[in-house]
Design a protein around this nucleic acid. Structure first.
Length: 946
RNA sequence: GCCCGGGUGGCGGAACGGCAUACGCGGAUGGCUCAAAACCAUCUGUCCGAAAGGGCGUGCGGGUUCGAAUCCCGCCCCGGGCACCA
């Protein structure tokens, strides 16, 4: 039997699993990886950590998937673990914790699909994930693990919401301040109550109580607003802009999304646009991620210009980045939903209105009718349909004319769906001469086109976007774009026609969801229907148990349906008697829940002080771990480039403004790990088939008898190509899995999984094991005899390289160096019959962050008591890194023709002479003219000949 | 369409402007063995050549340089982000 033939003490999967379980139990019972806080409940052991530098490494918060982990998930977790273990050995106080983002759509959708209650499904999934991760041997501090669904956790999520609700943004101070300070300023007259809730601009003292409340509410950073939002009947909830894909479908579930006016909770993230943009410069993040955030925030400098409407006391306000082209504005366009439209429409078409202007369908008898019809046409189209129809311009004339403030000309006002209500003011001045979209529309509707920038002579296109002197522009003529913008800006201000301004693409964060599985809002409504905060000492507002937690089942294509929050069905929970300062009264609770992203906005703070019941975080603890720059290393997928990372930065800034945290940015260094890809297979219909059922024959792939096509894609459910870590643990052990994932490529690159390649790192661990102890007897064969000089040099070169690579997260090359060291050691063992301890011990220590179980086991067998987790990482002896003799390539005309060996530190002249003395070089140089000799000290000689 | 990444052996991947292909997988040959596995050793970009040696080689085409995978310009392909954003 082959099993009997294998040596008894070989490092195989069985032994690996034994060792792994042993050390995982040891770390847990010995509390090896608890990171002490400076103060508070988790401060035990801080005496030993005093004087150490802190290191906060963080993995992006995963949601506990129902399918369990596949081998692609832990890539980043292993990376942070290796990095953390490496620095723990370098004497850092390392905080590494792990928790679960368990509220929200993915968790709830999973529960729905499997017919479970979300809490049961979530708890089971977390338990599975904990088991799978524990088996990987990650050095987490288990005391700090949290789930967003834990009541003590979401109590503080609600508390943070209250901070946001109870504050406003002071534009002058560029920061959030408590709402009580706003009220004080309003009462004292220091500030005028300017708000849409006070349309007449009455002074505070003349406002009634209700209006005062409404004014204050309109200032809050968390506020309710009737706005066009993304309604997704398929999910039964509204969604944030960030959760809607470019083709107008839900990020989760891929259901159609419709724009619909609904009153929803919003968070005023737009007030932070400038700081969110500017502070990116403080961060050590991959440039593409910063760019994605910059694009999402979408800052553009331009001007607001007001166009009076003829015959009405109304003005159309537009935002433009090209105020210099205002003389070329030959018509205007409002978004179909623009509120002004209803107020400016005349009863009948002006004389001589072209038929084409009267509506896309040519049947409209009055402007009002045409508008109604066009609005219906625009509203029924999803983003997807709009795109499918290309960019053909549609629209209709409103019957109204505006006056161009620059030249006084009357220009027609249209509505068209190429102008979006959600950007700028929802209205534009159309300048076809310098804008391609406006040009297309102008052609379609036969509108005049006036160039206001002189195109370059060779230009033969339509709209001209380049720079050039202004023409047809009165006092701007001759100026280039930059100067013209400047001048028109001054003119607008002087003539009360507008002013330079900055506009952002970023919208306020739609924060309410009509789903069950989320944090309830700590908000109640009185009889007046106005929101009131639940007092902080009455938190948490617990999520009620509901037998039927399902969202209303709606037709996913029915744009006319309305959200129906499940919490409205929790009758006993819904009504509550509270004393909010004016005696006990009955209130009705807010029935919306918070979005998935709420809980993940601040979990990195809770890891620091997870047991604190009196405050969000103890300032001393925040100071210790977060100062000066926040999380030292944050590893996660690029898919969170906008959503999570933007929201978390926003919350951090609000908490910073209000004095609850000490740093303005949460994540100093961000690193995006790649994805592990795996082969996936599609049959002739293009349907994905289960990858594990596919067999290979003669270079082709078959599912049963059907040939299938192979592709590579991100491992997961949708491609049916997931590989479970449990199978790899069973066949090779967790250390092999860890080592393989770190070896297969750079951490930030995506790469295909190859189970065949695992054998390579598995055999490496076997060779390491065999170099330390005898496979048959289990006896150590390590000797205290010194290593030979060459071996010692190899060791120290390895140490230097591994140290550097690990510090830079280049684990793949660090491992390659360890392979080389071990290969060298194999030769030494073959020759001497034993391995020198002075090589074996550093090698085990260097391996330990990567393969901690093997590391600990060998360390123990080498005679050490206790864990190596805090042993110093080996340091290279610099004197052993310099070579006595070096080999230098010699080139003739840039081609390598020979190698010469010279002592290190040889002078350039001597090196050149040595090169000339080489017989092959001498032969090549014989009879040719040497034009130049390049000598790179210690590296290369190049003879340049004719 | 615009903006980012990236294209290196049969495969995963190395390489401060200075010996391209480290390390691993796969493959070949040899050792050990009755034999196989395991293990150990050597070789393994490609073409010409018996060999010595030489030609060609980092997606394609140019350029800078004594010297380019690396820097610059123009293309092609793959992956990602944004997309009527005024």
């Amino acid at each position: 039997m082959s099993e009997d033939a294998a040596p008894k003490h070989r490092y195989d999967a069985r032994l690996a699993n034994e060792i792994e379980a042993k050390w995982q139990d040891y770390w847990e019972s010995e509390r090896t990886f608890l990171a002490p806080n400076p103060v508070g409940g988790l401060s035990e052991g801080f005496d030993q950590a005093k004087g150490k530098d802190k290191l906060y490494v963080l993995d992006m918060f995963p949601y506990p998937s129902g399918a369990g982990l596949h081998v692609g998930h832990p890539l980043g977790y292993i990376g942070t673990d290796v990095f953390g273990r490496f620095h723990r050995m370098n004497g850092r106080n390392v905080l590494h914790a792990f928790g679960y983002d368990a509220f929200g759509l993915p968790a709830e959708q999973y529960a729905l699909e499997t017919g479970q209650h979300p809490r049961d499904a979530t708890e089971a999934n977390i338990a599975t994930m904990r088991r799978q991760l524990r088996a990987l041997g990650l050095a987490h501090d288990p005391r700090r693990s949290v789930a967003t669904t834990d009541v003590p956790y979401y109590r503080w999520t609600q508390w943070i919401f209250l901070q946001i609700f109870e504050s406003w943004y002071d534009d002058a101070a560029h920061k959030a301040r408590p709402i009580t300070e706003l009220v004080a300023e309003l009462e004292s007259g220091k500030r005028e109550p300017r708000s849409a809730a006070n349309p007449d601009g009455k002074p505070w003292k003349d406002l009634d109580e209700r209006t005062r409340r409404e004014v204050v509410d309109s200032y809050r950073l968390a506020f309710r607003e009737e706005a066009l939002v993304n309604w997704c009947p398929g999910l039964g909830t509204v969604l944030a802009n960030e959760e809607v894909t470019a083709d107008g479908r839900s990020d989760r579930g891929n259901f159609p999304v419709f724009k619909k006016p609904l009153k929803q909770w919003m968070l005023r993230i737009t007030k932070y646009a400038e700081r969110l943009l500017a502070d990116l410069d403080l961060l050590d993040w991959p440039e593409p991620i910063k760019l994605m955030q910059r694009n999402w925030i979408g800052r553009s400098a331009g001007a607001l210009i007001r166009f009076p409407i003829e015959g009405y006391d109304e003005r159309i306000e537009v935002f433009t980045t090209r105020p210099d082209t205002v003389f070329g504005a030959t018509y205007m366009v409002l978004a179909p939903e623009h509120p002004l439209v209803d107020r400016i429409v005349p009863g009948d078409w002006p004389p001589a209105t072209a038929p084409a202007w009267r509506g896309t369908f040519g049947t409209e008898r009055t402007p009002a009718e045409a508008i109604t019809e066009y609005r219906a046409f625009a509203a029924t189209k999803t983003e997807m349909e709009r795109q499918a129809e290309g960019r053909e311009k549609t629209g209709v004339f409103t019957g109204a004319f505006a006056k161009n403030p620059a030249n006084g000309e009357a220009i027609p006002v249209f509505i068209a769906d190429y102008v979006l209500m959600g950007y700028g003011t929802g209205a534009i001045m159309a300048v076809p001469g310098q804008d391609e979209r406006d040009w297309e529309f102008a052609e379609q509707f036969e509108l005049p086109i006036v160039r206001t920038v002189e195109p370059t002579p060779e230009f033969d296109g339509k709209a001209f976007l380049g720079d050039g002197p202004a023409i047809n522009s009165g006092f701007l003529d001759g100026l280039n774009i930059v100067d013209a913008k400047h001048k028109i800006g001054e003119w607008l201000v002087a003539n009360d026609a507008g002013e330079p301004t900055i506009n952002y693409k970023l919208r306020d964060w739609l924060f309410s969801r009509q789903r069950y599985w989320g944090e309830p809002f700590p908000i109640v409504f009185g009889e007046d229907g106005l929101p009131r905060a639940v007092p902080a000492d009455a938190l948490p507002v617990e999520l009620p148990e509901l037998d039927d937690f399902r969202p209303a089942s709606l037709d996913e294509n029915d744009a006319e349906s309305d959200p129906e929050p499940p919490l409205a069905r929790a009758e006993r929970w819904l009504e509550v008697e509270l004393d909010l300062g004016d005696g006990p009264q009955k209130y009705v609770r807010e029935t919306n829940t918070m979005p998935q992203w709420a809980g993940s906005c601040w979990y990195y703070l809770r890891y620091l002080d997870p047991t604190n019941e009196d405050a969000l975080i103890d300032p001393a603890i925040d100071e210790y771990w977060m100062n000066p720059n926040g999380v030292d290393l944050y590893v996660g997928g690029v898919e969170h480039a906008v959503l999570h990372l933007l929201y978390a930065r926003f919350w951090q800034k609000v908490l910073f403004d209000l004095g609850h945290v000490s740093t303005r940015e949460p994540f100093h260094r961000l690193y995006n790990q790649g994805y592990i890809q795996a082969p996936a297979f599609r049959d002739s219909r293009g349907i994905v088939v289960e990858a594990t059922e596919v067999t290979e024959r003669d270079g082709s792939y078959f599912h049963g008898d059907n040939e299938v096509a192979r592709e590579f894609g991100k491992m997961g459910k949708s491609l049916k190509n997931a590989i479970a870590p449990d199978d790899i643990y069973r066949d090779y052990g967790a250390d092999t899995l860890r080592l393989y994932e770190m070896f297969m490529g750079p951490l930030d690159a995506s790469r295909p999984w190859s189970t065949a390649d695992i054998a390579g790192v598995y055999k490496f661990l076997q060779r390491v094991w065999r170099n330390v102890l005898d496979e048959d007897s289990g006896e150590l064969h390590v000797s205290d005899e010194p290593a030979d000089d060459e071996t010692r040099r190899v060791l120290h070169r390895t140490i230097a390289a591994v140290r550097e690579d690990m510090g830079e997260l280049k684990f793949n090359t660090a491992i390659a160096r360890l392979f080389e060291l071990n290969n060298h050691l194999t030769q030494v063992v073959t020759q001497r019959g034993s391995a020198p301890r002075e090589v074996v011990e550093p090698m085990v220590l260097m391996l330990a962050p990567l393969t901690p179980h093997v590391g600990e086991e060998l360390w123990q067998r080498l005679g050490h008591a206790g864990s190596l987790a805090y042993e110093p990482f080996p340091e290279a002896d610099p004197t052993l890194l310099v070579e006595d003799e070096i080999e230098v390539p010699v080139q003739v005309k840039g081609k390598v023709r020979a190698q010469v060996r010279v002592p290190a530190g040889t002078s350039d002249e001597t090196l050149e002479q040595a090169a000339r003395d080489d017989p092959r070089i001498a032969a090549l140089l014989d009879g040719v003219t040497i034009r130049k000799v390049i000598v790179v000290p210690g590296r290369l000689v190049n003879f340049v000949t004719d």
